[in-house]
């Protein structure tokens, strides 16, 4: 359940970059559902759809508009695994730290990603492009060490490969 990843997500500090337009959209939804019984979850789901995650600022907005205490909203957000308190990147990097990869130096690979991106486990870069996770065995031990970016698998990695991989996605992001 989400409680586990929570601590990590909480550490994360990405400056909130909500726009006036997003705010309007959420307020519109809240007012459209005013008085409807039990509409907190639909509102939070809508908010996550609009912002991609549920930062403090958005939780506060919901709390104020709906007259619901913050801790209730926080409680609901942390109970369900589909609510994120920190943004996920457009490209989600996960480095396998399973046994085979680990002994092949996956720890160094992971550290290199972390260093280049400037983020830690479960965090997201401030431009929203990359997030970083460590994962368990992906079943490609023969290719160890292995990392994945949104489902693309990269095997037999060396520390020197890391920059090349990131560059590839950064370029994709530009066009």
């Amino acid at each position: 359940m989400s409680n586990k990843s929570m601590g990590l997500e909480e550490r994360k500090e990405v400056p909130f970059q909500g726009t006036e337009q997003q705010r309007e959209e959420l307020l519109g939804f809240i007012h459209g559902h005013a008085g409807q019984k039990g509409c907190l979850m639909p509102v939070m789901q809508k908010a996550q759809e609009i912002y991609g995650y549920l930062p403090q600022e958005v939780q506060k907005l919901i709390a104020d508009e709906m007259g619901i205490p913050m801790e209730k909203i926080y409680g609901v957000a942390t109970f369900y695994s589909q609510f994120h308190l920190a943004p996920k990147g457009k490209y989600q990097v996960s480095v396998c730290l399973g046994t085979a990869c680990y002994v092949k130096g996956a720890g160094n690979i992971y550290n290199k990603f972390s260093e280049l991106l400037g983020i830690g486990e479960g965090e997201c870069t401030s431009d929203g492009m990359f997030s970083l996770d460590a994962c368990r065995c992906v079943g490609a031990c023969g290719l160890a060490p292995v990392a994945m970016v949104n489902g693309d698998v990269y095997g037999r990695l060396t520390v020197d490969d890391v920059r090349g991989i990131l560059d590839k996605y950064m370029k994709d992001g530009e066009d």
Binding site: M1, Q45, Y80, Q82
Partner: peptide
């Protein structure tokens, strides 16, 4: 069906629990 019976349905989405 002009029976005087009212009924409506709303969808609620879970969130992974």
């Amino acid at each position: 069906f002009s029976s005087g019976f009212d009924f409506d349905i709303e969808l609620r989405l879970g969130a992974g629990a």
